[in-house]
Design a protein around this nucleic acid. Structure first.
Length: 428
RNA sequence: GUGGGUGUAGCUCAGCGGUUAGAGCAGUGGACUGUGGAUCCACGGGUCGGGGGUUCAAAUCCCCUCACCCACCCCA
């Protein structure tokens, strides 16, 4: 038996249906806000990720699926989607437009030990908003992200928010952080000792209790912001506050990807990280090698984490609307032609469903040697209406429609079957 | 990468050195051959995750390995 690779998942109904419904809700919402879909390859030149996420980040240094193709090209399965999107808009010269709003839904790959809410192939959805440096873009992005979880899916979420400054103010902040943690160097965990030289900001993110304790007294980035960063952040806070978006200022939030600046945020529910994002004003310049200098902001959310939490909270059932199931049963070979004729007519009517304004239906075409078996099987399939033709019906050019819930049944002439059925469905 | 737990029928699990490995649910057939859900009866189904070892004897004990679950690191 060949089994699926470690950390991957097969999604089968009803979960597959739930995932599709969730995705549809998110994407149709984003399309109403003017975001356009974008799709990029699942693998890219490995340099793209090394340059964007940062060579010292865990995602790039130890979690990437790297490989060489037959020509020896160094490639990687994408561990995140922001950098590929940036690469795509540069390559397609989309940056000639002032403002670009994009959304995506796609797979990411990280070589990690699988556990709850963590898989080697996962699905992320997200938006990327290019060309707007003003804090209103930050507001829009956070509002959208919050709305998806809070309003569309009814989850009690927290928005954790921080500002990590820009090119102007970050160097001096980095220096004061370095000085501060240097005093405690021998107390820090081994990872943080390494981080001290590589990327001291990441120490703030460490979960080790000792490091955490030390971090609590560390200098805060928001106290070291330059005038324009401070104004940007204060305006954002004020606006989020005005619109009653519940935010939690988290001065320890720095995020694991190197490309962020200014605003960074995460969405949490019951201590589960559902989404994260932030501003990345220098990434386009970095990837385009200076050709373009365009500010941007975005976020990414995990589809599996959202699906899991909705299943845990049992609020997902409303997303899975049951359809009306109709089983067309031939009870004898002589009735095959009539039943298949009805089936083909119903197919056409499904296409024209909008005109007849009936509930969504599922139709089944089956054959049984006797009625008892047909009904038993229909019961297992949770059929609402069994439509059957046997010897008795054949003699009178009729079909029988049986309502499986009430047990009531009626005969109708073959020609008037469709209108009769539509009449029944309208009463549902 | 580190640590803990679990792998026995399609599913949930029992058995933890001693006949031919079990139960419930699910499946199939029948009682009931044109009227389903209930009940009763019967039947089918297993390399006990895989490999090696100890033993007269291994699902059971030991070692290795694989997979899944959980925690840490990190992250969606």
């Amino acid at each position: 038996m060949i089994e699926k690779p470690k950390g991957t998942n097969d999604y089968i109904h009803p979960e597959s249906t739930l995932r599709k419904e969730i995705t549809n809700k998110i994407t149709s919402f984003l399309e109403n806000l003017g975001y356009k879909p974008i799709e990029t390859p699942v693998f890219e030149n490995i340099e793209l990720f090394k340059r964007s996420a940062g060579i010292t980040s865990d995602i790039v240094s130890k979690e990437m699926y790297e490989f060489q193709d037959k020509k020896g090209r160094h490639l990687a399965l994408r561990p995140e989607i922001t950098a590929p999107v940036v690469r795509a808009i540069i390559q397609n010269n989309l940056l000639l437009n002032h403002v670009i709003k994009l959304y995506y839904v796609g797979s990411i790959f990280r070589y990690e030990k699988p556990q709850k809410d963590r898989y080697r192939q996962a699905t992320q959805f997200g938006i990327e908003y290019f060309g707007q440096e003003d804090y209103l873009a930050d507001f829009e992005t956070i509002l959208i992200c919050h709305h998806i979880y809070n309003s569309i899916f009814n989850l009690q979420v927290e928005v954790h928010l921080n500002s990590i400054g820009c090119q102007e103010c970050r160097p001096s902040y980095r220096e004061s952080i370095f000085e501060y943690f240097s005093k405690f160097e021998d107390k820090l965990c081994s990872d943080c000792k390494r981080r001290l030289n590589e990327n001291p900001l990441r120490i703030l993110d460490c979960k080790n209790p000792v490091c955490k304790e030390i971090s609590n007294e560390a200098p805060k980035s928001i106290d070291h912001l330059c005038t324009s960063c401070k104004k940007h952040f204060n305006n954002l806070l004020q606006t989020l506050n005005d619109f009653k978006i519940p935010i939690k200022l988290n001065t320890l939030l720095v995020r694991g990807l190197d490309y962020y600046n200014r605003t960074v945020f995460e969405i949490k529910c019951n201590n589960v990280d559902l989404a994260g994002g932030g501003r990345y004003d220098y990434l386009v310049r970095e990837i385009s090698q200076g050709k373009y200098d365009i500010p941007a902001i975005g976020f990414a959310g995990g589809l599996e984490r959202l699906t899991n939490i909705l299943q845990e909270q049992k609020t997902f059932k409303s997303l899975l609307k049951e359809k009306i199931r109709i089983n067309l049963v031939s009870l004898t070979e002589k009735a095959d032609k009539i039943i298949s004729g009805i089936y083909s007519k119903l197919l056409e009517k499904i296409v024209l469903k909008k005109k007849i304004n009936t509930p969504d239906i599922e139709i089944y075409l089956t054959k049984f040697e006797n009625l008892s078996k047909a009904l038993k099987a229909s019961d297992k399939l949770k059929i609402n209406y069994v439509v059957f033709v046997g010897e008795e019906e054949l003699n009178q050019d009729e079909v029988t429609i049986k309502n499986m819930e009430t047990g009531k049944q009626q005969r109708t002439k073959i020609e008037s079957f469709i209108p009769t059925l539509i009449g029944l469905l309208k009463d549902e």
